[in-house]
Design a protein around this nucleic acid. Structure first.
Lengths: 210, 210, 210, 210
DNA sequence: GATGAATGAGTATTCATTCAT
DNA sequence: TATGAATGAATACTCATTCAT
């Protein structure tokens, strides 16, 4: 078992090593332009080895999303679990959590969108697909929960919590993508943070009842 | 002259025919997965013919953006030109305009983002590139103008008009992309419209001073 | 018949117009890289029109050779026909004739070689093929005739006249191609003439008996 | 080390295998008409494999020239290095060397000419380009050296050694090309050898002083 | 005759994936 | 397990040739 375990750990280490390399390469070139050769080189492995750990290119890409989704859920649940904090506070903390997640892996937004391609989904193993769906659902549920409380207590405007959660996520991803497209992010992280602040301030003010 | 003119029109008709086909195919498969063969088949033409009207795949794709950008600018300028309307009204009309633009061509957001790729830009003819830059700039300028007025009159919160315009666009594109990724748009246009309304309402309330 | 004749002449004029353009384009780009579109543009005609006068690209190219071969034969026969001139004189005049032919159309050498490609021959009409073979044979025969006389009179070394004729032609084409490959011709026509002189001088001295 | 070495040798073997196939195919069809598919088939490999060993079609073609140039230089330098041999002898040996080179690879002439195309040069890697230029230069230099000696000793006519070297090469390539174009080479190697002899004899006699 | 738009077969090149070692 | 050489299907783009007008 000790041996079994060590092997298991070693295997996980390799997966991580590949994913780190893949993240860098996908991040720089995008999914289509990045080649498995690129990733193998970045990971200092041979192309063949990649296929020992990931079924194919799509699954390697998707597994990146899985990791970030895990982190996302962790952070959001942590916000939700704080005792004694009102929806107001939680919303603010949620904003910060989202920013941290983005810092942890700026690809998060692109990942989330790429994942939806039916072509991509077709190539994933059912197990991975299931995990991703599960994590996405839980994350959105946790965000909704915050809004549910706020609406229930009359602190937030009377919209369906899921709609508010969707809108919250939209604002966040919209800002990221917009700034990315304007090439403003690479030049200045401060600018991104500031713009996100403005966006959230507006969102926050707009969300409050009365 | 009649002949010259008719030929010109015929040529334009073909361009449109190809663009309509391209829009469908790109829309379904995305830029990388769509092949020129696909588009030719959809347009009921041979692959070679596409190249009589568009320099290459990138330029065909970009020309789709050009058309939508033209329509976008038209609508925004129209909003701005209304006499006697306050920033409040204009903002509401701007929201409606954006929705119309989206209905005119749902690919608008994806187009805008794809366009930024430096690889893409490299392959465009300087003329087309110039036109696109010009139109994008003008559109964003027109949106900023509305916010400039609102801020100047103390109706909107005191943020830089360009920042507000960016945020406005972010909210819009974020909602679209988010719902697209959830495959909710195809299933229900009403749901999109409603979600956009919620998002804009929140944005609108958040933007108002006091 | 007047009408018939005028049409005939008009048709010939067009053929010439196309051939002049083709010569320029082939000369600049070589056979494979030159496109029918290029030639049509140079001739200020449409691509389709080219096919009214020439069966295909190969035949257009071959017809250029035909013209130059006609001129070549004319010049060589003229040298041969001079009364009272000895083989010595004739050889010198032959050298000059060759140079004139080259000036008339520098493509002559390349043409002669390209023509041999079995792929090319396959695409020629039997009639054109026959004409070309006929002209080539006659030209080489006429050159051989000069050497035949020289050998018979003991003025030239005792080699088979055809071998000498082949060698003569080889020296000429060899110099042209060699200088072309060194890009020396375009830069200086004088250099070509001088090098040809040296080559012919050597040839001349080597050819003389004793 | 043993492994490293064996791999290296295996790799070189593959390069040779491809080059042999390429030589055959280019030889038969010429550069433009030969396809990479043809070559792959001849080499009993897949098209993709060719690109593991050669950057592109141009470079594969050029590498054929490189090999023949290496052999050419080897032979010429060997002639030049013979102690006690006069320019006369060396010239004769040079003739034989040239013939051997031709037998080693009959494509030599065509290769040399194709190489000059600026289009071709553009597609070569700088390293390969440099090697080719270097070898060509050295070969011509070595030939010139023989003539330089002959002229200095008053054995050869008083022309610039480089001019004589150019002429020598011209005669050689001219004969080859001319006979090739007449399809005489394939039918009878003896005929080529004889014609080359005649040509070189003439050249030799013409080159001698007095 | 002349046109030039349309064709579609042809080709170099790339790259995800496999498999013998 | 790991390798990386080999594969071969896939694809953007070109261009000689045709044919309706």
């Amino acid at each position: 078992m000790g041996i079994q375990e060590r092997k298991e750990r070693e295997k996980e280490r390799r997966r991580q090593q590949i994913m780190v390399a893949a993240k860098r390469v996908f991040s720089e070139k995008g999914f289509s332009k990045a080649t498995m050769e690129d990733i193998a080189q970045e990971a200092e492995l041979s192309p063949g080895t990649l296929y020992l750990y990931f079924k194919n290119k799509e699954e390697l890409y998707a597994s990146l999303s899985l990791r970030i989704l895990q982190y996302l859920l962790l952070r959001i649940e942590h916000v939700n679990a704080v005792k004694g904090a009102g929806p107001d506070d939680k919303l603010k903390q949620l904003m910060e959590a989202m920013y941290d997640v983005y810092e942890f892996d700026p690809l998060i937004i692109i990942n989330m969108f790429h994942l939806q391609s039916s072509e991509t989904l077709r190539n994933l193993s059912p197990q991975l697909l299931e995990e991703i769906k599960d994590l996405s659902g839980k994350s959105m549920g946790a965000i909704s929960q915050i809004f549910k409380e706020g609406v229930a207590k009359g602190i937030f405007i009377n919209h369906h919590p899921v709609a508010l959660a969707d809108t919250f996520w939209s604002v966040f991803s919209g800002v990221i993508l917009w700034l990315t497209s304007k090439k403003l992010i690479d030049e200045s992280k401060d600018f991104l943070k500031e713009t996100l602040s403005v966006a959230f301030e507006i969102f926050y003010k707009g969300v409050k009842a009365k």
